[in-house]
Each structure stands twice: as structure tokens, then as C-alpha cells.
């Protein structure tokens, strides 16, 4: 019984270390998209490990913690995805290191096409 609790505490510790690394990524990364990369992944796994470790310490809490884990696993990627989408839509500046931007190419293509074919629709 004692060993499983210590394993749970160590898993919780590992989760909090990942959370610190994710925040360090938020501080160090050069632009919004790379910050989302660091933030989302680290906070998802960090929180999951923290909750799972606590579940090993209190085995009777496991049900609620599993609900929380599923919830974080489903919603966190969606919120980061929708945030990146709106950020790209309002043209948040990307870092100078960025090499290719296919989404921007598509958007400029679409607007120029619209301007060529039916310019009167806008009026």
C-alpha cells in the first residue's frame, strides 16, 4: 500500500515538472504559434500526470479524477486549435524564423480571386 502511494506522489512530481517546462517554453519561444505548441502539450500531460498520481494516492477518488482527465484531454487541444485559428485570422505576426505558410498563401489566393471575378459583390 505504501509503495503505490509513493509511486503516485512521484508521478505527481513529474507532472508538475512538465508544467514548469511548459511555462518556461511560454517565456522563451519566439512567436504565438510556437508558444501554443509548448503550452498546450506540456499543460495537457502535466495536468494528466498530476491528477493520475493523486488518484493512486486516494484510490477512492479515481472516478472523478478519470472524468477530469478525459475532460482535459478532449478540451485542451480544441481550445488551442480555435485560438490559433483566430490568431491567424487577425494576422498575428509570425516569427522571422518561419519558412513556409501555406494557410496564408491560401487566404491571399482566395481574396485575389474574389477581387478578379466579381468586384461588385462587395458593394
Amino acid at each position: 500500500m505504501e509503495t503505490i502511494e509513493i509511486i503516485g506522489a512521484l508521478i505527481t512530481l513529474a507532472g508538475s515538472i512538465f508544467l514548469v517546462l511548459g511555462s518556461l517554453g511560454l517565456v522563451r519561444m519566439p512567436d504565438l504559434y510556437t508558444r501554443i505548441q509548448a503550452g498546450t502539450k506540456a499543460s495537457t500531460l502535466g495536468t494528466i500526470l498530476t491528477l493520475f498520481g493523486l488518484g493512486l494516492i486516494h484510490l477512492d477518488w479515481m472516478g472523478k479524477l478519470i472524468i477530469l482527465i478525459l475532460f482535459v484531454l478532449l478540451t485542451n487541444p480544441i481550445s488551442s486549435h480555435i485560438l490559433a485559428r483566430s490568431a491567424h485570422y487577425i494576422k498575428t505576426p509570425v516569427s522571422k524564423l518561419t519558412k513556409v505558410d501555406k494557410l496564408k498563401d491560401k487566404e491571399t489566393e482566395k481574396t485575389s480571386e474574389a477581387n478578379h471575378t466579381n468586384p461588385e459583390d462587395e458593394l
Binding site: S16, L19, S23, L26, S43, L51, V72, N76, S79
Partner: peptide, 9 residues
């Protein structure tokens, strides 16, 4: 977003 998810933990 990151801060709220960590505060769940």
C-alpha cells in the same frame, strides 16, 4: 489557458 489548466492540478 495554460494557467487555468495548471490550476486544475
Amino acid at each position: 489557458d495554460v494557467m487555468t489548466i495548471s490550476s486544475i492540478g
